[in-house]
Amino acid sequence: MQFKQRVDVSPEMLSFVGNGAVPGAGWPAGSIGMSFRLGDSVLAFHAAPTAAAMIESDLAFVVTAEACRRIFGLVPDEDARWHLSSDLRAIVIAIVDCRLAAPARETLRLAKSIELLCAVFEKIGDHALVPTDGCGELNELDARRIVAARRLIDEHWHEKLTLDGIARACGINRAKLTRGFRAMFDTTVADAIADLRLAGAGEMLRATDLPVSSIGYRCGYLNNASFTRAFSRRYGVAPTLYRAHRLAA
């Protein structure tokens, strides 16, 4: 039987990455579990985790409830399923698809597992996660289509995207996509795209010496003026000043 790769994050936490079964032995006593599925963008919380419950995941955690209470001040007391938000999904992808060679790969996966655990508990504490059954008037099929729209945005934010094009690609009409996306993710389609584009632009401004105009184009903006306006509204400074301030710091 194929098993996921085990990462010993700490004496109180294990991470299991990739395809295959989750080894059921050697877990810390009194653990809770989390499993992350990229295919349908679901985060599942397991109050009493089992290897069988997490077998279909791309990534799974087991961590002691005591550690969660000590660090985050809370632990859910029952199983739950939430839609995997775009920022959490990005961390999961970084863990699962890491192309570094060992031992750097294991080091990155350890660090990112801690980052992901902290990010999940922050959202739990802020009630910022959307339950998979909390879709209001949407039926199950439409909810899946809107999750697919979110996944399309998460993966193709740097390309030309339109509301009509996303709706067609996901098999849902424009009006239902607009209403359902806001209900499920507490944001509009346009704002979700803009958030990802501007976050990507900020990262490129910090990490590369590419011209500002090239960064804007790579992040989905058709011209430098529209990129500068959008970036300035979001961050309060133009991209050139943002880069200069970051470098000076």
Results as ranks from 00 to 15, higher is better:
M1F: 15
M1W: 14
F3T: 15
R6N: 11
V7N: 05
M13Y: 03
L14R: 06
V17K: 00
N19L: 14
A21M: 13
V22Q: 04
V22S: 03
P23E: 07
G24Q: 10
A25C: 09
G26F: 09
W27Q: 09
P28A: 14
P28S: 14
A29S: 15
G30L: 11
S31N: 13
I32L: 12
G33P: 14
G33N: 12
M34L: 15
S35V: 05
S35A: 11
F36H: 08
L38N: 06
L43H: 03
L43T: 01
F45T: 02
H46N: 01
H46V: 00
A51W: 05
S57Y: 06
L59N: 02
L59C: 03
A60K: 09
A60V: 09
A65W: 01
A67Y: 10
C68A: 09
I71N: 05
D77Y: 09
L88N: 06
A90D: 12
I91E: 06
I93L: 10
V96I: 03
D97E: 12
L100C: 11
L100A: 12
A102N: 15
R105Y: 09
E106L: 11
E106Q: 14
T107A: 14
R109S: 09
S113W: 00
E115I: 12
L116Q: 03
L117S: 06
C118G: 13
A119H: 08
F121L: 14
F121T: 09
K123G: 03
K123I: 02
G125S: 06
H127I: 10
H127C: 12
L129S: 01
E137R: 15
D142A: 11
R145A: 10
R151F: 06
K160M: 14
T162Y: 02
L163I: 09
D164C: 06
G165R: 04
I166E: 03
R168L: 09
R168E: 11
C170K: 06
G171A: 05
I172K: 07
N173S: 11
R174T: 15
L177D: 07
T178V: 11
R179T: 13
G180H: 05
F181R: 04
F181Y: 12
M184T: 04
V189Q: 00
D191V: 02
I193Y: 04
I193R: 06
A194S: 13
A201R: 00
E203A: 12
T208E: 03
D209T: 05
V212R: 00
I215K: 01
G216T: 00
G216R: 02
G220C: 01
Y221V: 04
L222S: 12
N223G: 01
S226P: 05
R229W: 08
F231S: 01
F231W: 02
V237P: 10
A238E: 11
T240L: 09
R243M: 04
A248I: 07
